[in-house]
Structures are given as structure tokens and as C-alpha cells.
Write a protein that binds this DNA or RNA. Structure first.
Lengths: 218, 218
DNA sequence: CGGACCATGTGTTTTCTTTCACAATAATTT
DNA sequence: AAATTATTGTGAAAGAAAACACATGGTCCG
């Protein structure tokens, strides 16, 4: 078990391993080799072992990994042995899509608040057991419901403004779906999901006459 | 102008530069230095110059880049000097969110078909000027409307099955929102957008007591 | 209990990316 | 027209990530 700093790519892969392991578990596998898991995730098997080596030794030589155990450990590493409280800002189609996305609760991510500034939407109640609040309540509700991660699904031109408001609350993480670069204070961490960047990559590869498939993930 | 192979990371960044340039253009800038653009995109300025160097020389020494020109060139490089036909499969909330996402047409991405297997949904007409078709029409419509990229927004357990159907059409690109690894023939290219991978990264970083912000993009 | 076998964990090598640093070159000033 | 200033384009260095390859330490069978 080393203690250098962990590559972001490693974390990304752990997340994928976890997903794969969940699938393997439901398929009834109780033990798996790095080789098989690698094939499943389309990675090199040494890569998997190296990734895991950052955090400890989880396998049995000559045997492989106990699926249940490894899954547990990976989730622990990722910080998924707790639940996370999310607040979503911007209740357009995408907002609704995310808040209803049944995969989140399964991974320990719970939406606990939703915000919008459209008077038509404010007050509308959601199946999650709360209703849409005005932006002006963000600070209060963030504290009351202990929001840890803010998901921004506003139009691009509002996103920075919203990020500034978020930065005034104790929220330390932002998942930004607006296609703009957000500027935030040091202590806030921003991750960005931009659909068109992904499409652009596809377009580039498809436009570049040639070859092969493969899956430059997430 | 070299002719080695282009890093994926470079393409991803080009896409971001393009977005930044669009913003700068509307802000009235006609010329910009790599330094300024770099600050805007939160990258190293040498990085920008290197990225561009793969494709040619687009700047003027001592001056910088003509915004309009550079934007045009980057779009050309990315293959955005044409329009792309997209078909979407799986008309849940996310499907609707994407099909209505006003950013896509602006970048040359047009949805030309939508598919679902829910009899409740089939036939429902959409504001884009077509209606939801059953999966069984996929092959025919893909050809008729020249779908180039399929966007998969089905539940995870249907995604592989759908991918198999797509692989039988002339479609060469898949943008997959389902959190599963898709296996497809060589000639089909898959890109993957997985929300929970991003959340997992946030969770990891937030769980790891410590430090700094920054934005491990897209 | 010993030998055959297997898959992990890891030191080393290779490959890929990013950053540095400066020569080349265009505009501007004196 | 020379000197000054600005910013590109790029070779070379540094740094990071991935892959190789094998010793290590387990299991299993006779």
C-alpha cells in the first residue's frame, strides 16, 4: 500500500469496476480474476491490479478477488459507504430526468432539494417528498437539509450566477451540466458534464474517415 | 504540421476551446492570445498552441489568433462544418431533455428520429417535426433519414440489446447514457456518458478530507 | 507433504502528455 | 530603419500513466 497521490483516472476506473462488479454479483459470480474483470471493463488487467494496489491488497494470489468483498472495498474507497445529499438547481427537462434517475439512490445519492426561479414551478411538489423552492431559499435549505453536492442544470447563462450562490453555502461539490466554465473559490470542487464535448469527439472520429471502435469512456 | 496521431485529450480540449471562442466572439473580441484563451479555459497556454500545432498554424506571431478564424478552423477540424443526424432511443425524461436541448442544433447536431417500445409513447409527435417510432422501425428509418449517431437513453438492461440493433444499421456512432459497457462490432464507435462516475469522483474527493478545487473536466 | 498450477502484487520499462523555454516573426515605436 | 515589444510555434525536458513480466505466495491434487 503506497501513499503517493492517486491519479484521477484510477478513481474513474474504480467507479467502473464497481459497476461491473455489481453486475457480476447479480450474475452469481462469487470470485473473479483481474483478467476477467479487465475484459469486462475493457482495460488491461495489470491496470486493475495497479489501481487497487494504491489502496491495499484485496485479492488472493492464485485465486482472484471475492466479488462481494472487492465491491465493498471499492465502495468504501470511493466514499460510498455513506449517503450523499444532493440539491438540484434548474428544474427543466434535464433536472427532472436526473431527479428521477433511479440509479442514484442505489449508489447512495439522494436528492433532498430542488430549486428554480420560475414562479410557475416554485411550490410544485415532487415524488421525492419535497417541492421546488425558489433560489432565494438556497442558503437556508442547504444548511437545513445538509446538501453536500449541488447539481447545476440551469441554462448556461445562469450557471455562473448560481455557482456564486452555491459558493456561499457549505456545499463543497458542484456537478455542472451547463456548458460553461465555472469559476469558484478554492474550497469548492467542480465537475463538469458536457454532452456536446462527447458528441464532438464522436463527430471528429466519424469525420476522420478511418478506423476502429473502442470506447473512450465517460 | 505534424502527422502523428492526435491525442483524444487534444480533441476534447478543442471542443472546449470552441465553446470558449464562441463566448469570446459574442463578447466582441476579434483577436485573442493563447495566454488569454488559456486562462479562460483553465489550461496551460503552451497546451493550446501544441494542440493547434497538430493541425496547422492558425495564429499570427506577436499578435494572437483571430477569433472568428480560429473558431472556424477548430469547427472544421472537429467535423462541425457539416450537420449531423442523430436518432434517440429511449424516450424517458432524459430522452426528452436531450431532444429539447437547444444547444445541439446550434452545434450542428439535429435529432431526426426518436424510438421507444412503450405503446403509450409510440406515435406521440414531437416538436421537432417527427413522432416516436417503434424499435422495429429502427433499421428502415435509420437508412431513410440517414441517422449517423444513435443516442441511447434506455434503461441499462435494454442498452446492449438496442446497441445490437443499431449495429445492424449503417449508424457508425453511439452515444450511450446507460451505465453499462456496450459491446459492438469494430466499425461502430461508442462513447459513454455516465453520471454516477462523475458523482463518484466528486464523492471520493469530498470524502478525502483535504484540499483544492479545480475541474477535472468532462 | 510435495509438486503443479494459478493469479496477484509490484519493480521496471515503455509510452503518452504536459510543460518549459526560446528562436522565429510580426507589429509598433522612436 | 533600428530597437522594442508581443506572442506564436516547437524542440527538448519533465512528468504521469499504462503495460510488461516475473517473483511471490496462495490453492489443489495425488
Amino acid at each position: 500500500m503506497k501513499f503517493s497521490k492517486i491519479p484521477t483516472a484510477t478513481i474513474t476506473r474504480l467507479s467502473r469496476y464497481s459497476r461491473a462488479l455489481e453486475e457480476l454479483e447479480t450474475q452469481g459470480f462469487s470470485v473473479i480474476s483481474s483478467e476477467k474483470l479487465a475484459r469486462h471493463c475493457q482495460v488491461n488487467s495489470a491496470q486493475i491490479r495497479k489501481d487497487l494496489a494504491y489502496f491495499g491488497e484485496f485479492g488472493v494470489r492464485g485465486v482472484g478477488y471475492v466479488v462481494k468483498e472487492l465491491l465493498f472495498e471499492i465502495k468504501r474507497i470511493l466514499g460510498l459507504n455513506k449517503t450523499w445529499h444532493l440539491g438540484i438547481i434548474g428544474m427543466g427537462n434535464l433536472g427532472y430526468a436526473l431527479i428521477d434517475h433511479s440509479n442514484f439512490p442505489r449508489q447512495g445519492y439522494y436528492f433532498v432539494a430542488a430549486f428554480d426561479n420560475d414562479p410557475q414551478k416554485i411550490g410544485r411538489s415532487l415524488s421525492q417528498g419535497f417541492s421546488i423552492s425558489p433560489m432565494s431559499d438556497l442558503e437556508r435549505i442547504a444548511v437545513e437539509r445538509d446538501i453536500e453536492i449541488a447539481v447545476i442544470t440551469t441554462p448556461p447563462n445562469k450557471a455562473q450566477e448560481v455557482a456564486d450562490l452555491v459558493a456561499k453555502t457549505p456545499v463543497r461539490g458542484i456537478l455542472n451540466f451547463a456548458p460553461v466554465q465555472l469559476h469558484v473559490p478554492e474550497r469548492v470542487m467542480v465537475h463538469h458534464i458536457d454532452f456536446t464535448v462527447k458528441l464532438d469527439r464522436l463527430a471528429y472520429r466519424l469525420g476522420t474517415v478511418d478506423m476502429g471502435s473502442t470506447d473512450p469512456q465517460t
